Amino acid sequence: MNPITLIIIYFTIFMGPVITMASSNLLLMWVGLELSLLAIIPLLINKKNPRSTEAATKYFVTQATASMIILLAVVLNYKQSGMWTFQQQTNSMLINLMLISLSMKLGLAPFHYWLPEVTQGIPIHIGLILLTWQKIAPLSILYQIFHLLNPIITTILAISSIFIGAWGGLIQPQTRKIMAFSSIAHMGWMMAILPYNPNLTIINLVIYIILTIPMFMTLMMNSTTTINSISMLWNKTPTILAMTSLILLSLGGLPPLTGFLPKWAIISELLKNNAPIMATLMAMMALLNLFFYTRLIYSTSLTMFPTNNNSKMMYHHTNLKHNFILPTLTTISTLTLPLSPQLIA
């Protein structure tokens, strides 16, 4: 692809969520969502093969449907109230339409079917953008209207996403699909706490992005797309194997790693707001999440798949792929739990 075209595309992807976050006008928020949607489509079909074309089509159809519902809710709200913002007197049906459409954009269950398939059919670095940066704009809209959301619908979306994210990741041999189901589960945790303490949603999103970026970096460095291919890390880059294991445990929320912080804070906040059943269900599903992360670690570090003799000595060769950001991000994603009082305060 032309470098100038690529720069314009990435700049548009960057500006879309920025416009959404900086706007209080619902129409401008919709414009920001559309910018990021239309800009990422050329990246999805950059590699011309049937899988990428299928993924781009699924992504476009789903996101365009959600955008249409958002625009319908915005226009009907303007017709009823004469304002481009949601107020306390706004029709609850319009708020629910907005919530459902944003759930489709985030890939929350039961609107999650497109996310694993799209993530599987695109390059790893585009999957990173899809699972991190593209989540910011819808969540920023939900953050601005959290006091108007129906807590029952929000809770149903959150619990179903956590269940689907936990169970779906158990049977996946593809690393990109595992990360997609991980994203669904983490989005469920963010939605669960949104009606009670939206600031914890932002903290959870930031920590999730910090954890996901180094995980995708390790996948990109070795082009590992399946559990079998990631199992070869021990004889290619043993150091990366150790870093990957720590990041996976942190994603699963195992103390004393950084990923434990948002789960601990969210469960504590739910208990303060008299929601012990919901907190218990979420903690139980967190164990399932930790299980399929641990399965990855088991496949990579505790088992030795059949390999030829030449591949067993590959770590002696010089690795030309140097990444200076990865050690810093790995440190942040594993060792920042002592900062939890400052972050939660």
Rank of each mutant, 00 (worst) to 15 (best):
I213T: 05
M1F: 13
F181I: 02
Y298N: 15
N235Q: 09
A242Y: 14
T53V: 14
T334Q: 08
Q89R: 10
R295I: 10
L102I: 10
M15P: 03
M217S: 07
G121N: 01
S223Y: 07
M215Q: 10
L38Q: 06
S160E: 05
L26K: 00
G188S: 02
L270Q: 09
I122S: 04
W114T: 07
P276Y: 10
I19K: 05
M278A: 10
T226M: 10
N323H: 09
M1A: 14
A286S: 15
I162K: 00
L35T: 03
A56L: 08
N228F: 07
I159N: 00
P195Y: 01
L246H: 03
L320V: 11
I277S: 12
Q172Y: 02
P138C: 01
L128N: 07
L329K: 03
I207G: 00
T239A: 12
I227Y: 03
L38T: 11
N46T: 03
P173A: 09
A22C: 08
A166E: 03
E34M: 03
L241W: 06
L97T: 00
S340I: 11
Y78R: 05
L33A: 02
P50D: 13
G121Q: 02
I70A: 05
N96Y: 08
T85A: 06
I164E: 06
W167P: 00
F260M: 08
N273D: 02
Y298G: 12
N309Y: 10
I141Q: 06
L131A: 05
A73M: 04
Q120F: 11
L337A: 13
K312H: 08
T336E: 07
M1V: 11
A64L: 15
K48L: 05
Q88L: 14
T12I: 13
G32N: 02
S161Q: 04
N2P: 11
S245C: 14
P238D: 04
A137C: 11
L254E: 06
F111L: 11
Y196L: 07
M190S: 04
T336F: 15
P327T: 08
T62L: 09
M104H: 03
L37M: 13
M232R: 12
S268H: 09
I100K: 01
V18R: 08
I41V: 15
K177H: 06
M220T: 13
I247V: 12
L241F: 04
W264M: 12
F260H: 07
I213F: 04
W234G: 01
M282A: 13
F260A: 15
I129S: 09
I145W: 00
L106Q: 02
N308K: 04
S333R: 01
M93V: 12
T331H: 05
P195E: 04
N150H: 08
I124R: 02
N150I: 02
T175P: 02
M215E: 09
Q134V: 09
M98T: 15
L249N: 00
L102Y: 02
L248W: 07
